[in-house]
Measured scan of single mutants.
Amino acid sequence: DVEEQIRRLEEVLKKNQPVTWNGTTYTDPNEIKKVIEELRKSM
């Protein structure tokens, strides 16, 4: 579920933690925001 994935990513973003997405680890909050944007567009 895309909305659930977005929620999880936003939680990680709030905690300022790195997130691994599709085999890539993002540590930059701006990169994580881009991933969230892409997910929103795909909905």
Rank of each mutant, 00 (worst) to 15 (best):
G23P: 03
E38V: 08
V19I: 12
T27R: 04
M43N: 10
V19H: 05
W21D: 05
E38M: 14
S42P: 04
I6W: 03
I36W: 02
V35Q: 02
T20P: 02
E37I: 08
E31F: 05
E3G: 11
N16P: 05
L13K: 02
N16L: 03
E3N: 09
E37Q: 10
W21A: 13
R40P: 00
D28K: 03
L39P: 00
N16E: 06
I6S: 01
S42W: 09
E38N: 11
T24R: 07
K33C: 07
Q5T: 14
K34H: 09
I36R: 00
E37D: 14
K33T: 06
I6Y: 02
V12E: 14
I32L: 09
V35D: 01
N30A: 14
I36M: 04
Q5P: 02
V12G: 15
E3P: 09
R40S: 04
E31V: 06
L39W: 03
V12I: 12
M43E: 05
S42D: 06
V35F: 07
V12Y: 14
E11K: 04
K33H: 06
P18R: 04
I36C: 02
I6V: 06
K33V: 09
I6L: 06
M43P: 05
K15L: 15
K33L: 12
I36E: 00
N30R: 11
K14W: 10
R40L: 07
T25F: 10
T20K: 13
E4H: 09
Q17A: 11
M43G: 08
R40Q: 07
E38H: 11
I6E: 01
R8Y: 15
K41Q: 13
D1M: 10
V12R: 13
R40F: 05
L13D: 01
I36G: 00
L9P: 00
I32Y: 01
K15F: 11
W21S: 10
K41V: 10
K14I: 10
K15H: 12
G23R: 00
L9Y: 02
L13E: 02
S42N: 11
E4W: 06
E11Q: 06
E3R: 10
I6G: 00
T20Q: 15
I6C: 03
R8F: 15
V12D: 14
L13G: 02
V19A: 07
E38R: 10
T24W: 04
R40G: 03
E38W: 11
E3S: 10
D28Q: 04
W21G: 08
E38F: 10
V19M: 05
Q17K: 07
Y26P: 01
N22W: 11
L13C: 06
P18L: 07
Q17T: 09
D1C: 13
N16S: 08
E37Y: 04
Q17Y: 15
P29V: 08
N30H: 13
T20F: 15
I6Q: 01
M43F: 06
V12C: 15
L9N: 00
T25A: 03
Q5F: 13
K41Y: 08
T24F: 08
E10K: 04
L9C: 02
E31W: 02
M43H: 08
L13S: 05
Q5V: 14
S42E: 10
P18V: 09
V12K: 14
E3H: 10
T20S: 15
N16T: 04
Q5W: 13
K34V: 09
K41P: 01
P29R: 04
W21E: 07
E10N: 05
E37K: 05
K41R: 11
Q17N: 05
R8W: 15
E10H: 04
E4D: 12
V35E: 02
T20R: 13
Y26M: 11
M43K: 09
V12T: 12
G23D: 14
D1H: 11
E4F: 07
R7W: 04
K41L: 12
V2K: 05
S42K: 12
E38A: 09
E3F: 12
E37L: 07
P29D: 04
S42H: 09
E31P: 02
P18A: 09
L9Q: 00
R7Q: 09
V35K: 03
L13F: 07
P29Q: 06
R8G: 08
E31R: 01
G23E: 09
R40I: 10
G23H: 02
D28P: 00
Q5A: 13
T25R: 02
K14G: 08
D1Y: 12
P18G: 11
V19S: 02
E37H: 06
T25I: 12
E11W: 02
Y26R: 00
E38K: 08
E11V: 05
V19E: 06
E38Q: 13
K14P: 04
E4K: 10
